[in-house]
C-alpha cells in the first residue's frame, strides 16, 4: 500500500480553487518531484496534507490516507501526533522559518519534546546527534546560537534537523534550495538524498527548478493552475513530454537552445482568480489549442503504467500533438 494516498484533493479560498481535485500517491522510499510555475498550487497542496490551511481556506478530499491513517476523519489530537513526527516539512526560506527569539537547540529540542518526550539530557543528546547528522560542525556549541548567527545554508540544515528529529516516514521539502547559492544548493540536496536513502524515507521535493528534480527524483508531477497536468517517471517525462505545458517548460530552459538564440517562451502567466478560462486551463497559452480545448476540460488519464496526462491531444515522442 502506498505511504501517502491523495484522492481528489481540493483547496478553495472562497470561490477560487487554489488546488483543483488532484490525486497522487507516494510510495515508501520514493522521491517525488512536484514542479510548476508560481501560482500553480504546489505549496498549497502540500500545506493541505500537513493540515496547515487556515480559515478561509477549505480543504476537501475523497481520500487522504497516510500510512494506514485517514487524515480526514481522525481527531485533531491524533492528527497532530502524526504531523510533525511521521510527516515533516521543510519550508522555502530558512531565514524566516526559524524563530529568531529562541536558540537553535531550543527549537530542535521542542520538536523532540512534543513528539518523543524523554529527559532534558536525552533530548540534548539527540539534538547534538541530529546537528551532527546534517553536517554542522561543532554541534554541542551550536545548540546555543540564535538563527541570525547562522548563514542561509546552515539555517536550512537546522530546519532539516528539526524536520528529521522524529524520524519521519515522509518529508515534504517546499523549495528547500531556492534561497540558496548553487554550491550550497548542491550540498543541501545531497544531504536530503543521503538522509532519504539511509532511512528509506519518502521525499516530496517541490520546486520550480526542472533540472534539480530531474537529477534527484524518481517520479515527477507537473502542476498547472492547481491541477496535475502530467505524471511520469523522471527519466521519461523530460525526454518525451506528453503535455504541451511540460514541453513549454522544458523549451524555456536555456540549456536546450543554441547560443544566443531566442528562448521558446510560453506567453502570458498562470491564470488567477478572475481569468480562469473555460475548458483546458492552458488553452490561452497553448500553441496547439483548438475548439475542443476551449470548451471541454480534458481528464487526467493513464497513457501507460506510471504515466498520466491531462490533455486532449497528448504529444507524440517527436513533440507534435496527436489530433485524431
Amino acid at each position: 500500500m502506498a505511504l501517502l494516498e491523495v484522492k481528489e484533493l481540493a483547496v478553495q479560498f472562497g470561490e477560487f480553487k487554489a488546488v483543483d481535485r488532484i490525486s497522487y500517491q507516494v510510495e515508501q522510499g520514493q522521491v517525488v518531484g512536484i514542479v510548476g510555475e508560481s501560482g500553480s498550487g504546489k505549496s498549497v497542496s502540500s500545506l493541505a496534507i500537513m493540515g496547515l490551511i487556515d480559515f478561509p481556506g477549505k480543504v476537501t478530499a475523497n481520500a487522504l490516507h497516510f500510512d494506514g491513517h485517514d487524515l480526514k476523519t481522525i481527531s485533531e489530537k491524533a492528527r497532530r501526533r502524526i504531523v510533525g513526527a511521521d510527516v515533516a516539512m521543510i519550508f522555502q526560506d530558512p531565514m524566516t522559518s526559524l524563530n529568531p527569539c529562541f536558540t537553535v537547540g531550543y527549537q530542535i529540542m521542542e520538536a523532540i519534546k512534543i513528539h518523543h518526550g524523554g529527559s532534558k539530557k536525552q533530548r540534548r543528546e539527540r539534538a547534538i546527534k541530529l546537528l551532527n547528522c546534517v553536517g554542522i560542525p561543532d554541534p554541542a556549541n551550536r545548540l546555543n546560537v540564535y538563527p541570525h548567527q547562522l548563514s542561509g545554508g546552515m539555517s536550512q540544515r537546522v530546519m532539516i534537523a528539526i524536520a528529521i528529529a522524529c524520524n519521519p516516514k515522509l518529508l515534504i521539502a517546499d523549495e528547500p534550495t531556492t534561497a540558496l547559492d548553487v554550491t550550497i544548493q548542491g550540498q543541501i540536496i545531497e544531504l536530503l538524498l543521503d538522509l532519504q536513502k539511509k532511512d528509506n524515507m519518502a521525499l516530496v521535493l517541490i520546486t520550480h527548478d526542472l533540472a534539480l528534480v530531474a537529477e534527484a527524483a524518481h517520479k515527477i508531477i507537473v502542476m498547472y493552475a492547481g491541477q496535475i497536468v502530467e505524471i511520469g517517471d523522471a527519466e521519461v517525462i523530460f525526454k518525451s513530454p506528453l503535455h504541451p505545458y511540460t514541453q513549454a517548460l522544458l523549451n524555456s530552459l536555456p540549456e536546450f537552445t543554441q547560443d544566443k538564440q531566442r528562448l521558446a517562451s510560453l506567453s502570458g502567466v498562470v491564470p488567477g482568480k478572475y481569468d480562469r478560462p473555460h475548458g483546458c486551463l492552458l488553452n490561452p497559452r497553448c500553441p496547439y489549442a483548438d475548439k475542443q480545448c476551449k470548451t471541454v476540460e480534458p481528464i487526467l488519464h493513464a497513457r501507460s503504467e506510471n504515466r498520466q496526462v491531462k490533455c486532449h491531444y497528448p504529444l507524440s515522442p517527436e513533440g507534435n500533438p496527436s489530433y485524431e
Binding site: 550540498q187 527548478d209 537529477e215 523530460f238 522544458l250 530552459l253
Partner: peptide, 25 residues
C-alpha cells in the same frame, strides 16, 4: 569547476562529474 559541476542539468549528457564543495564562502 565546482560551480559548473554543481549546476543541475536536465540533459544527462551535459551533467558534469560532481565536485563536492564543502563549507561556505
Amino acid at each position: 569547476q565546482a560551480l559548473l559541476s554543481a549546476t543541475p542539468r536536465l540533459n544527462p549528457d551535459l551533467r558534469r562529474e560532481r565536485i563536492k564543495l564543502t563549507g561556505e564562502l
